[in-house]
């Protein structure tokens, strides 16, 4: 019997030590709740939020931006305009590869400063090919370089979007105007969509983005350029916080050569419509059946 009680004592000691060690191991989590509220934890999917819920969420997010970044911002829930189907086209004959579009995206969309994040990557490809395998994004010389052409790539807002199909929880979907969006407060960060996208269009928030308060673009929308939380997916939204209010995407405005054409494809007088009707356009990796809304064309 003495042996039994010794064993019991030992077991109790073991259990106590184990519990203490477990607490120690979990200790880093103590730093977590700082930017995690119960409201956020229980928040429902974008499409399940009533107007009132949404207003409350928007005010909370604005407050969080103020608390965490020291910036006063307005976050809107900008809805799609009926009878609008957005399309984008890019003239490869005039693009010079200056990456002004990528820079404008970086600023407009409140991207992390340290990683110089942007939704646009510009490929430099040797003339005589449009094969991506022949391209590089790491060029570092004066542009345009002789014998090279340039191909900016961003989200193609595919009509048959693999990123949308694979998401296990509908955290990403296609809006009525064709824009593929992410609910940053619903995404669990599994990165399945990033694996599924054939155009390297998705970006993950590997860390909490860092942006100085004075550099934060205060004109924000829930589904687009508000500062994203850590651990969720994001992507180009055709600047829906601008374009759904009748403005043009930031990348288009920044382009010095006028290579970019954006607009409502349903409007017969729009420039995008003219390009689609009069130019020979092509889309990337057409064979995959993704049906992009981002078109490339050449002048001649």
């Amino acid at each position: 019997m003495e042996d039994t009680s010794r064993r019991t004592t030992l077991k109790a000691l073991g259990a106590t030590l184990g519990a203490a060690a477990f607490a120690r191991a979990m200790a880093p989590l103590a730093a977590w709740p700082e930017d995690l509220s119960i409201d956020e934890l229980l928040q429902r999917h974008y499409k399940e939020l009533s107007r009132d819920d949404m207003v409350r969420v928007l005010r909370r997010l604005e407050q969080e931006t103020l608390d965490q970044y020291g910036a006063v911002v307005t976050i809107d829930d900008v809805r799609p305009i009926p009878e609008v189907q957005f399309g984008y086209a890019l003239n490869l004959s005039v693009c010079v590869g200056c990456r002004k579009c990528a820079e404008a995206c970086h600023v407009e969309n409140n991207h992390d400063r340290a990683t110089n994040q942007s939704y646009i990557r510009v490929l430099e490809i040797k003339n005589g090919s449009v094969d991506l395998a022949m391209g590089t994004v790491d060029y570092d010389h004066a542009v345009p370089k002789k014998g090279r052409s340039y191909m900016p790539v961003q989200c193609h807002q595919c009509d048959n979007a693999p990123c949308v199909s694979v998401c296990p929880i509908e955290a990403t979907w296609k809006e009525p105007d064709g824009i593929v969006v992410v609910d940053y407060n619903w995404c669990i960060g599994c990165r399945y969509c990033e694996a599924a996208c054939p155009y390297h269009a998705r970006r993950f928030n590997w860390h909490k983005p860092e942006i100085p308060a004075e550099e934060i673009n205060p004109d924000q929308a829930y589904l687009s350029n508000r500062v994203r939380p850590q651990g969720v997916m994001e992507k180009c939204t055709f600047c829906l916080h601008r374009t759904r209010k009748g403005r043009l995407p930031a990348c288009l405005e920044a382009c010095p050569t006028g290579a970019r054409v954006f607009g409502n494809m349903l409007d017969p007088n729009s420039e995008i419509r003219w390009v689609l009707e009069n130019k020979r356009t092509f889309v990337l990796k057409e064979d995959l059946g993704t049906r992009p809304r981002f078109f490339y064309f050449f002048d001649k």
């Binding site: 934890l41 999917h45 694979v166 509908e170 995404c187 669990i188 599994c190 939380p229 969720v232």
Partner: peptide, 29 residues
């Protein structure tokens, strides 16, 4: 899979009934 999630606090979104289960389209479901 769970340690691979960027937001483990939202893992409940994956629960059928509780979250929004994108079944049968998503293979992950």
């Amino acid at each position: 899979v769970n340690v691979d999630l960027g937001r483990p606090d939202r893992a409940w979104h994956l629960m059928p009934g509780l979250g929004r289960f994108h079944w049968p389209v998503s293979m992950l479901t």
